[in-house]
Amino acid sequence: MKLEVDRVSKHFGATAALDGLSLHLGEARVLVLIGPSGGGKSTLLRVLGGLEVPDAGSVQVNDHRLSADPAFLQAYRRRNGFLFQQFNLFPHLDARRNITLPLEKVHGHDPTAARELADQALGRFGLLEHAAKLPAQLSGGQQQRAGIARAFAFSPEILFLDEPTSALDPEMTAEVLELIQELAEAGQDIILSTHEMGFAKAVADQVAFVAAGKIEECQPPGRLFASPDSPACQRFLSRVMRY
């Protein structure tokens, strides 16, 4: 994927979540956003995913120049997949229906085709036996995997994952990260934010360090984790890698 983000700002009340942020990426398959909480990772991800409209600046993702037009953004969102920290699934629908409903209503598949696609996705992520369960009956890790299965079933152009394992215990974190890595290795374009540095190192083509609403540094992981250029990134890494 290609990204052209130019001087993008986004304010919530008096706080600037994004403060003239720019990012130019020619070619990357997996972009990982790291940085302190409240630094703007989520907001950047939401802007890139078409869930939030910036106050200023321009964003281009592949060939799509993002506009503020609701109809454009809705069509853009349909092309991509988005996963939040938690509560992604619709609690009144079972796992399979969570996947088939958007396939039918958004992507226009007939019920049989939607069911087939859903079962493929569930089967691939080892969830087929849980297809008829409601989200409340699934573990946190299974819920996130089902959420990824839902996003993945549309064959998304880009998969956006906003701290997908932050609400999970270590074991469930591992099961979700393994799945994301598998998708990345299969060629899926992914942009994700995470606090799992080991995972970022293993899976990313490019790692961007986001702090105070700006990209402080964007490098391949080998470079960024071994010898970060910016002092802020050095401080951040030395602190999070200590334990």
């Binding site: 988005f82 509560f87 992604n88 619709f90 958007p102 209503k105």
Partner: peptide, 18 residues
């Protein structure tokens, strides 16, 4: 209904009516 549900619904591409 929690915010996350509205967001998830928007994220899968539902229109406002949907």
């Amino acid at each position: 209904i929690p915010r996350a549900q509205w967001e998830s619904a928007r994220a899968v591409g539902f229109s406002p009516v949907q």
